[in-house]
Amino acid sequence: MPLQSDYLNNIDDRSDLKDEPKTLTAPQAVEMLQRRLDPVFGEGEGVIRVFESDGILADAAAGADYIKIRSDAIFNERDVRALEVHEGLVHVGTTLNGQNQPICTFLAKGPPSSTVTQEGLAILMEVIAFASYPTRLRKLTNRTRAIHMAEEGADFLDVFGFFREQGYDEDECYSNANRVFRGSLPNGLPFTKDLSYLKGFIMVYNYIQLAVRQGKLEHIPLLFCGKTTLEDMRTLRQLVDEGMVAPPRYLPQQFQDLNALSAWMCFSNFLNHLSLDRIEADYANIL
């Protein structure tokens, strides 16, 4: 986590990486997101609905066959792209794949035990679909750090101050601190769901790496069969072989092309074994 924070801090002040202005209203974001998801899930079939809502705290939230957009939220195109991938292709997609199961329709339901895998899969999809961006990663990292602070005894004001130090405005600081202490007290224990994003990303990434390493590529798309957990993947594979579980109907392009995904993972595994300190020393005169 500190290493990732260092990377993000080093590029934070670059003017060419500043976020696009948020100029899209909720109705515009709804229209754009619906237009992008229709070709994936079936245009004209009403498989997935995108609509405004006044009853959510987050900018967006996914349900079984819909995505709600908060009515007063403002977006840019990159935000909408992230929602398309995270909420649409992963969260709604896995739910619909679960509903389409001939027998094991319970895979459409997401028990708490599936949260880490599902959120990790969504973050991984953001990365490999080029839908993520430094501000997004910084937000996830800071939320994780804030939870750690609360676990170590920090109260609401301490966490609020931490987000101020990270450059957020007061409204964002309050919202982020409030997120950490959801369902708790200002000096109580944190709500730790936000740990699932980065923890899940690491776990799902490692699972795919090992699947490629062991030549078990057929296991990878099964992550989208429904609200799966990594602990159940071996059993899920057996159920597929027995005809009890159907392969996912809705599968992102990045996971349809196992040739490209496995090549990416092979190169990634190789690069992970290189020493960045040694590389930095070797490149000292050219970078």
Rank of each mutant, 00 (worst) to 15 (best):
2 P>N: 06
206 N>R: 15
152 E>V: 08
41 F>N: 03
202 I>K: 09
193 K>G: 03
266 C>G: 09
128 I>W: 00
25 T>H: 09
79 D>Y: 08
188 G>T: 07
174 Y>Q: 14
97 N>W: 00
94 T>Q: 03
257 D>G: 13
262 S>M: 12
236 L>S: 01
220 I>T: 04
55 G>Y: 12
286 I>G: 07
12 D>Y: 10
28 Q>K: 09
58 A>K: 08
145 R>E: 15
270 F>S: 14
110 G>Y: 10
77 E>A: 12
55 G>F: 11
145 R>N: 14
224 F>L: 06
207 Y>E: 15
119 E>K: 03
27 P>Q: 04
144 T>H: 09
173 C>R: 06
23 T>P: 05
151 E>R: 12
144 T>Y: 10
184 S>E: 08
258 L>R: 04
190 P>A: 07
102 P>S: 05
95 T>A: 00
269 N>P: 06
209 Q>M: 14
182 R>W: 08
32 M>Y: 02
44 G>L: 11
218 E>Q: 11
222 L>R: 15
67 I>H: 05
13 D>V: 07
283 Y>L: 15
285 N>E: 14
157 L>Y: 15
88 G>E: 01
234 R>P: 06
82 A>K: 04
122 A>R: 00
132 S>W: 03
178 N>F: 04
142 N>K: 04
12 D>P: 01
20 E>P: 09
164 R>E: 08
276 L>K: 10
122 A>L: 03
103 I>W: 10
